[in-house]
């Protein structure tokens, strides 16, 4: 999987690269419009992550150029301008997702994964982890082949975990993933706790291994012990 990161803030590009590299992606970084434009002509990427404000050009223009070349490449916009027009314009010209800065790397990672799943297998894919099997198309979860009904939020939570295996997720990033940016009260953190408790209970009751670990003071991690 090849990912191009178009971001002029070097530190941020570095962090994204490191994070994605751990997930097994091959990452390349462009800091300027010209460099990125050149790369999309020369190489083939599965996914392009684009910052809209580049020092020498507009990210939206880059997306248009890319879409003319290869329409199947997934595009995720990351922007400091949290403007609806940008979001709509971006989606209109063919980008798949929009994240406004600052965002969580885990969220970006989950979005990239979900995008690639949709792009590459038309969604006809399933995610397996240990004895858990998830079919995103039907939103069904099976444990040891047994269907396990989960609530909507529990399913979203499980998928978020599965997209970020072996990564410490902050409670805030989970809360934001589940309820969006607008719920900022301390209660949402309590709710994360109770949702995780419920999810864990349901998974364990069907005989799944306990994959969820709590990381002291900061969040949770999903993975093999």
């Amino acid at each position: 999987m090849k990912v191009l990161i178009v971001e002029d803030e070097q530190g941020l590009a570095e962090s994204i690269t490191d994070y994605m590299a751990k997930e097994g992606y091959v990452c390349e970084v462009s800091a300027t419009f010209r460099d990125a434009d050149e790369r999309i002509y020369l190489y083939n990427y599965d996914c392009v992550i684009v910052d809209l404000t580049l020092p020498d050009g507009d990210g939206l223009q880059l997306i248009q150029n890319l879409k003319r070349l290869i329409a199947t490449t997934g595009v995720i916009i990351i922007s400091a301008r949290n403007a609806l027009e940008d979001k709509l314009k971006g989606l209109e010209i063919g980008s798949d997702d929009y994240l406004s800065k600052p965002f969580h790397l885990s969220e970006l990672n989950a979005r990239v994964k979900s995008l690639l799943r949709r792009r590459q297998f038309g969604g006809h894919t399933e995610i397996r982890f240990g004895n858990i099997q998830v079919v995103p198309n039907t939103r069904m979860v099976y444990i040891n082949g047994q269907p396990t009904p989960l609530s909507r939020k529990e399913y979203d939570l499980l998928l978020y975990f599965l997209s970020n295996v072996d990564i410490v997720l902050t409670k805030a990033s989970i809360a934001e993933h589940l309820w969006g940016d607008n719920i900022d009260s301390a209660d949402s953190l309590d709710m994360v706790y109770s949702h995780i408790k419920n999810l864990r209970r349901k998974l364990l009751s069907k005989g799944a291994d306990d994959y969820v670990q709590s990381v002291y003071g900061i969040g949770y991690k999903f993975g093999l012990r």
Binding site: E9, G11, S15, Y19, H104
Partner: peptide
């Protein structure tokens, strides 16, 4: 801010 967030996450 995005940078701080990213670094903290790492």
């Amino acid at each position: 801010l995005a940078l701080i967030n990213a670094k903290v996450e790492q």
